[in-house]
Nucleic acid binder design. Structure first.
Lengths: 208, 208
DNA sequence: GAAAATATAAACAGCTTACTCACATTTAAC
DNA sequence: GTTAAATGTGAGTAAGCTGTTTATATTTTC
């Protein structure tokens, strides 16, 4: 088997110049995120997205060369948002409790619009050429911020990266589960998630 | 819209009587789990399953009335296994540390064969008639065990159920993430997951 | 050796899908 | 006001895939 050769994979077929075309593209991406979140990758069709966006299918293909380019755009937009949440939460030095609270609040906010988009993007949507790179780079920077946070609030220097991964995936798991049950804004959940973070980072229950 | 009327939905079209038909059915379910785990619901087709099982498509339809009945069988088998893991871990009273270690070990083992099956079953696979019930009942019993464990190791009686949900979804998140990265058997991950559980249940980092 | 159980795979009808194209409308430039 | 570029439309298409049936072949049981 020869090494997989990357397709040309243009990101956009045409750059929107006027205001209305910018709005069209935005509407398509937004509707795409909605469809992807609500019906999963299996139900994600270009026709459905166009209809949900209140736009003809032709308009969609005027800007996006194919289906994958569209998913890519959706992915990029979502990941950027999530990343900025973590970046902000871990920006200045602050007590652990504040960090946890802000992180929880931000993550929940980021997932409130399209509750299951994140997981669908991570698990179901294919990462064919072009997105795998963005995907990996996102994951790397994502983990980077978590690692920094762990290093900041944790004594030992051991297993820092593993801890960051455990922490981030635990948070994602809780949020994903809550999203599925429409419980994202339950205050006791937010509190408990915050305490999970604090407890793990304080780590008094764990004599190494 | 009228209330959804349940289809007849027979569980099996014919009960296997001879040894080889039992083996056939088993092979189909096993292959189905593999296909579902590896390609997701979108790639889950009866023909593909039959081929993966080394069995003709006709044989599949001799026992399973339709696609959904097959998913149901897969779901039932997997959920039973996971449930028995938790049941065993929380069986007798034992120190928190032991409980955590055994739970982690069991969950990892249960997910090692088909790493992402659990999530696919929970998120992607449809729960049409017949399975929603099984699904809900599984979730209930699942949570029940976690709740019992939380109550056992935690002082306060407040928020016990929420804690159970947070704990279970956090664990699932970590395991799911590790599975995706083929890191399920990394020992430092197991250790850290154990410590997450202990820290949360000990809960010293969290002054309520 | 007959009847019941089990296995086979070609065939099909229907549906969905991603995507194109010829044309209509709107905006901007002069 | 005219023109050319930008943008929008949606019926149409061709291909692929799906779940399922059926008529036939093989194996087991008694």
């Amino acid at each position: 088997m020869s090494t997989r050769i990357a397709k040309p994979a243009p990101r956009m077929r045409k750059e929107p110049r006027q205001a209305r075309s910018v709005a069209t593209v935005e509407a398509i991406i937004e509707a795409g995120a909605r469809v992807l979140s609500e019906t999963g990758w299996a139900g994600f069709s270009t026709n459905k997205v166009a209809e949900a966006a209140g736009v003809s299918i032709g308009s969609l293909y005027q800007y996006f060369p194919d289906k994958l380019a569209l998913v890519d755009a959706i992915r990029r937009r979502h990941f950027d948002r999530v990343l900025s949440v973590i970046r902000e939460a871990a920006a200045e030095e602050k007590p652990l409790r504040h960090f946890a609270r802000e992180l929880v609040r931000g993550m929940i906010a980021a997932h409130s619009i399209h509750p299951t988009l994140h997981q669908v993007l991570l698990d179901e949507a294919p990462g064919d050429r072009g997105s795998r790179a963005a995907h990996a780079s996102f994951q790397a920077r994502y983990l980077e911020h978590y690692t920094a946070a762990v290093a900041q609030y944790r004594r030992h220097r051991k297993d820092t990266e593993t801890m960051a991964r455990v922490l981030s995936s635990a948070i994602e798991g809780v949020i994903h589960n809550a999203a599925r049950r429409n419980m994202l804004d339950a205050p006791e959940l937010q509190k408990q998630l915050g305490e999970l973070i604090c407890a793990y980072l304080t780590g008094q229950g764990a004599r190494v």
